[in-house]
Amino acid sequence: MEYVWAFLVGGALCAIGQALIDYTKLTPARILVSFVVAGVILSGVGLYPKLIELAGGGASVPLTGFGHLLAEGVRKAVDEHGFLGVFLGGLTSAAGGITAAMLFGLLAAVCFRSKDK
């Protein structure tokens, strides 16, 4: 049943993003930022951890999950380091994902050549 919930929640998040692309004049960049901010807000009010518990990867993999990860990192760092944790927490908690994205981007750039359209 957890696969069904992951599919439904992840699919719903993707459908919302597709609807925003199709029916609004928002740019993809603004939609992506909105998803991250929505994850931070939902995490701040305590709803996103419950959604992750229900849907697992369907909630933690999309961009809203990245926002949740940033918010949780900041919350933990503030508990440990005080005000300095506001600046350290998000980067510390997301360092693995950011590093993987940069590494795979570099690997793709080395392996493939860009072509003019």
Score class of each variant (00 low, 15 high):
residue 34 S to A: 15
residue 34 S to D: 09
residue 35 F to Y: 14
residue 38 A to T: 14
residue 39 G to D: 07
residue 39 G to Q: 04
residue 41 I to N: 04
residue 42 L to A: 15
residue 43 S to R: 05
residue 43 S to Q: 13
residue 44 G to T: 13
residue 45 V to H: 05
residue 46 G to M: 08
residue 46 G to C: 08
residue 48 Y to A: 10
residue 51 L to Y: 04
residue 52 I to Q: 10
residue 53 E to Q: 14
residue 54 L to D: 03
residue 54 L to H: 11
residue 55 A to P: 06
residue 55 A to T: 04
residue 57 G to N: 05
residue 57 G to V: 08
residue 57 G to Q: 07
residue 58 G to D: 01
residue 58 G to Q: 01
residue 59 A to T: 10
residue 60 S to C: 09
residue 60 S to I: 06
residue 61 V to D: 00
residue 61 V to Q: 04
residue 63 L to D: 07
residue 64 T to I: 14
residue 64 T to M: 15
residue 64 T to W: 03
residue 65 G to E: 00
residue 66 F to R: 03
residue 67 G to I: 07
residue 67 G to C: 06
residue 68 H to D: 09
residue 72 E to S: 13
residue 73 G to D: 09
residue 74 V to P: 02
residue 74 V to E: 05
residue 75 R to T: 14
residue 75 R to E: 13
residue 76 K to H: 12
residue 77 A to H: 04
residue 77 A to R: 06
residue 78 V to E: 09
residue 80 E to V: 14
residue 81 H to F: 15
residue 81 H to M: 14
residue 82 G to A: 10
residue 84 L to H: 08
residue 84 L to C: 01
residue 85 G to W: 08
residue 85 G to Q: 06
residue 86 V to H: 09
residue 86 V to C: 09
residue 86 V to G: 07
residue 87 F to V: 14
residue 87 F to I: 12
residue 87 F to S: 12
residue 87 F to L: 15
residue 88 L to S: 12
residue 89 G to W: 08
residue 90 G to H: 04
residue 91 L to E: 00
residue 92 T to V: 10
residue 93 S to P: 00
residue 93 S to A: 15
residue 94 A to D: 01
residue 94 A to L: 07
residue 95 A to W: 06
residue 95 A to D: 01
residue 96 G to K: 11
residue 97 G to W: 03
residue 97 G to S: 06
residue 97 G to D: 05
residue 99 T to E: 01
residue 100 A to F: 15
residue 100 A to H: 09
residue 102 M to W: 14
